[in-house]
Design a binder for these strands. Sequence first.
DNA 1: TCTTGATGTAACTTTTGCAGATACTACAAA
DNA 2: TTTGTAGTATCTGCAAAAGTTACATCAAGA
Lengths: 144, 144
Amino acid sequence: MNNDTRLSVAAHILALLSFAGKEYRSSDLLARSVNTNAVVVRRLTGQLKKAGLVDVRRGVGGTTLNRKPEEITLLDVYKAVVPHPKAAPFYLHQNPCCDCYIGRNIHDALAAPFARVNKAMEESLANTTIAEIAEFIRKREFKE
Amino acid sequence: MNNDTRLSVAAHILALLSFAGKEYRSSDLLARSVNTNAVVVRRLTGQLKKAGLVDVRRGVGGTTLNRKPEEITLLDVYKAVVPHPKAAPFYLHQNPCCDCYIGRNIHDALAAPFARVNKAMEESLANTTIAEIAEFIRKREFKE
DNA sequence: TCTTGATGTAACTTTTGCAGATACTACAAA
DNA sequence: TTTGTAGTATCTGCAAAAGTTACATCAAGA
């Protein structure tokens, strides 16, 4: 697995937006908070927009939440932001040898277990919302 | 091969070895079955050996299972073969901005949910053994 | 003892996928 | 019309893993 931090960054962005309420935040501001490039942020917000999680305005615009934070789970974010072939936790190796019966069948043999792992992972992701993450931060920061 | 296929390749190797019984198989033969390089195989079998899953002999040697196939779970393989910092499904982005309260706290806020996802994944991996994978292949190939 | 065939491992090259950066267009609001 | 933003194409740089080559090490058998 490569170190994909897109879920982490997207959660950061959405948590920040949840504190902004109905106000729009620019990709530049978001990029500074995440400590990355504005283009990287725009690529992410673009995907979040496609998934209906945020609204992005051009012109003198920015990004705002399009759904209540408690209605956005990490699974929603994950699905929005992780490209599809990568959305499984593990990869099957390419072109195993077809002349031997292991190579011929290993992919099918691993498909079911890998699918179960994927399902377990997704169910777990669905158990956390952006609201909870924001609440954690609020408690930590404003000590109360 | 971009993403990490080590679990997939290692499972392939172990399934093959489970059919070989007590016989030793060379890294060259394994590499041909997996369709990769013998050195890549040796790097993997080296890690599997460290974890006690296989026995590797030098000289006129090779690799054989060191444990019954039904006593090797995908979690054992995963832990043996995936380097530690990578053993979590998702990564936290580096150096979020410490000047804003989101950046200061996002890592701690995500730690618990990510740990839960990791646990769910590991529990799922522990539910499948090499014996089951081998059995799937046996049934498929020898139609019975 | 010598030969053979295997692993262990170091060092290097190749591949690949992002991240990051730059530059430009499209656009909306004041 | 100006200004500040998103959208996007394109390039570079970088890091990790795969793949390759080469060679030392080792064990078994003739």
